[in-house]
Every structure is written in C-alpha cells, then in structure tokens.
Design a protein around this nucleic acid. Structure first.
Length: 377
DNA sequence: TCTGGGGTCCTAGGACCC
DNA sequence: TCTGGGGTCCTAGGACCC
C-alpha cells in the first residue's frame, strides 16, 4: 500500500479576538469586536479595573476585523462596517487592532506546529497547511480506522498549539488542501475533522458553493443564477457547461473542485511579490481643496513603503498608486523604472508621476502606494 | 447606518522584437 | 503595401483571500 497523502488545514479560532482575551481575561465570554483605529484603547481606572469602549455611538469608517463568537451570535461578522455592528450589538466591547501582538502569537503557534510536523505552508497570520503524510504514526491504523493514526497526530498538534499559546484552533485533515480547508470549518471552534474522498457526498456536497476556497461573491452569484447552489449540484453539472459559462481554466477548476480533486503541492517557502501601504481617509478629500493634506499623506505612504522594503531587504522596480473615489470606483496606475528603488524620495517621485495620469475631479476616499517587481537587496 | 488594509493571481491589449 | 506567429514586457482592472 502506498502511503496516503494527508494534508491538514489549521485555522486559529477567532484569532485576533482570542489574543485579546488572553490580555483582557475579564472579557471572556463577552461580545467583543476588534477593529477601527486607535481611539478606543481600554482605560485603566483608579480601582484597578479597566473601562472598555463599546460599539454604542461609534461613528467612522472602520470595519470589524474579528468578533468573538458571543458577538457573532448578534450577527456581527468580519468585514462588516462598525456602524452596522453597533446597531446589532451596541453593548459589545470594541478593541483596537494590535497586529504586533497577533504576529507574536502567530510565530508562536507556527513554531509549536513545526515541532510536530515541519512541512508547513504559511497562509497568513492565522492559518497554515501542514503535510502530515510522513509524520511518524500518521499512516498507522487504529483498529479498523485507517485514519486513526493521522487523527492522533492532528490531535497532538492541537494540544501543542494550546500549550504553547493558550489558544485553540480547528483542524481539517483530508487528502488535499482544498478539502482540508473545507474540513477545518466543519467543527469550528476547537474542532478536528478527518475526511476521505468517501465522505464527499455526505459531508461536502451539501455545502454552499461559496464555501469552496476560490468561489467568491461574483462566481457565487453567477452559479446561483444557473441554479447551482450546493457543491453537489456543481459536481453533478456538465463540465462543458461550466467551461462555456466560466472559461476553460476556471470552468475546469470548478468541476474538479466540486469533485474534491486538487493536487496542488504545499508551498513551503516563497518570496514576496509586492509591498504596499494604503489608507482610507476620515472624510473624502479633494485634490485641490485638500491638496496640502493629500500631499502629506501621499509622502507618508511612500515613506512607509520605503521603510517596509528596507526592513525586509527588498527594492521594487515597479511603483504604483491606488485611488478610490467617493463613488467607490478604484483606479491604479503604475510605472516601471530602469532600476529597482527602495528609498522614500525615489518612490515618492515615481508615485507622483503615476498620479499625474489620473483625473482628480472627484473626491478621494483612499490613497495607496505600492512597490512591485521586488528584488532582494 | 454602505463597504479596511495587505496581499496573490489572472486576463487582456498594446508595444516591441525576432 | 494589407500582413503570420510566437514570446516577453508593461499596464490596468478585477476576482479572490486573510
């Protein structure tokens, strides 16, 4: 028997919110929302207790980055505007985002996992894929359960993460990344789900097509218009019809994905492609009337990109800008230079060239600066 | 109660070269 | 002087993800 391929997807539970609960244990069990700017830090009071800001009366353009499960019970979810979240759960505690802290915990849980299983693909701050195929014990049967060994390995990883960070995670273990990603959500939070291809009809096919990693709002709506709502309906659908509606590559992918087919390897190391900084203004700004403020922000963004590049040891040959107007229309412009640059002045200069190519009659809500075509310094 | 910030990848057209 | 085909680079936009 050849060894089975066992891929795990590990997803930290309500990651940012859970990190904050470690710092503020008095909030355990409460509806807590992480998001917005820095204007709502908890205040330590003379009696030693903390006073927290709540969502009530929030005014601004912030969105929910993460919400605790208690807050989710009110219908609050990530990406939702904080104004809307405040209407749903005015009493929920609002905490500012502290990426530095989350990155520490992120490094912590990844290092803990690597002790058990070193083949890891990084998928951002709070999730990873892990190849368990060659981890000792993963191929063992337990009684009549061929997946018993890998289940034990995954459970050990969960225990290790918990010990190292105090945080819980959910893991899906399946023959490939696509199914593992789906499976990790099936028993969230603090869950472990092991699936094989045999489980496809009962566990995967009833799910909405939008659960598939790679089907977003647009493709989801298009599939719905075709009467395809579940992964099972998609799996049963004629492959030629999917190609006709979605193009050759994406049509084929849809058909394979719905049938649980995915042979993508883990990517265990990678170089960054671009680095960018962007900001949404508190109020929409006009190129002429708010010129001084826009110039200041523009220069600041260029300088932040330069700092990021230098800190990580890269230079960028393509400098670009991003603008979002008051009607939410977004445009980009970029410029490829003869030489890669990493200093603030050169980035600011190139970004300024890009800006000249944009019609600035509408007011702006967002400005961004980007460096692509990265080379190692 | 409109919609953050940081990314990746894909497509498509035009320039330019052989 | 009516016109092929392939390859690469550049640019702009868009879908999608965390």
């Amino acid at each position: 028997m050849p060894p089975r391929r066992w891929i795990a997807h590990l997803d930290m539970d309500a990651f940012y919110a859970s990190c904050e609960l470690l710092r503020y244990p008095d909030l355990a069990g409460q509806a807590v929302v992480i998001g917005g700017g820095r204007r709502h830090q908890p205040v330590l009071q003379p009696d030693g207790t903390r006073r927290y800001a709540t969502l009530a009366g929030y005014a601004g353009r912030g969105v929910v980055t993460t919400a605790t499960y208690a807050a989710r019970d009110f219908g609050v979810h990530s990406g939702m505007g904080l104004m809307k979240a405040a209407a749903l759960a005015p009493q929920a505690v609002l905490l500012p985002v502290d990426f530095e802290q989350y990155r520490r915990y992120s490094r912590g849980f990844k290092a803990a996992v690597a002790e058990v299983a070193p083949l890891i693909e990084d998928r951002g701050i709070d999730e990873i894929y892990i190849d368990l195929s060659d981890v000792p014990g993963a191929q063992d049967s337990v009684g009549h359960d061929a997946a018993g060994g890998v289940r034990a390995v995954a459970q050990e990883i969960r225990n290790t993460v918990r010990r190292a960070t105090g945080l819980t995670c959910s893991i899906g273990v399946t023959p490939n990344k696509l199914l593992a990603k789906l499976a990790s959500e099936l028993d969230k939070p603090d869950g472990l789900t092991v699936l094989t291809h045999a489980d496809l009809p009962t566990r995967i096919w009833p799910l909405a097509v939008r659960k598939l990693n790679g089907i977003g709002p647009k493709a989801g709506a298009k599939l719905a218009a075709l009467g395809l709502n579940t992964i099972g309906q998609l799996a049963q659908c004629d492959a030629a019809l999917l190609r006709a509606h979605f193009g050759r590559a994406y049509g084929r992918w849809l058909h394979e994905a719905a049938n649980g087919i995915d042979d993508r390897p883990l990517v265990t190391h990678g170089e960054p492609v671009s680095m960018s900084r962007e900001t949404t203004f508190d109020r929409d700004l006009h190129a002429v009337r708010d010129r001084a403020e826009l110039t200041r922000i523009f220069t600041e963004l260029a300088s932040q990109v330069a700092t990021d590049l230098q800190r990580k040891g890269y230079a960028g040959r393509t400098i670009g800008i991003k603008l979002r107007f008051d009607d939410f229309k977004t445009v980009t412009r970029d410029l490829t230079l003869p030489q890669a640059v990493a200093d603030a002045a050169a980035i600011r200069q190139a970004a300024g060239q890009c800006l000249k190519r944009v019609d600035l009659s509408r007011r702006l809500r967002l400005l961004g600066v980007r460096a692509g075509g990265l080379v190692r310094l």
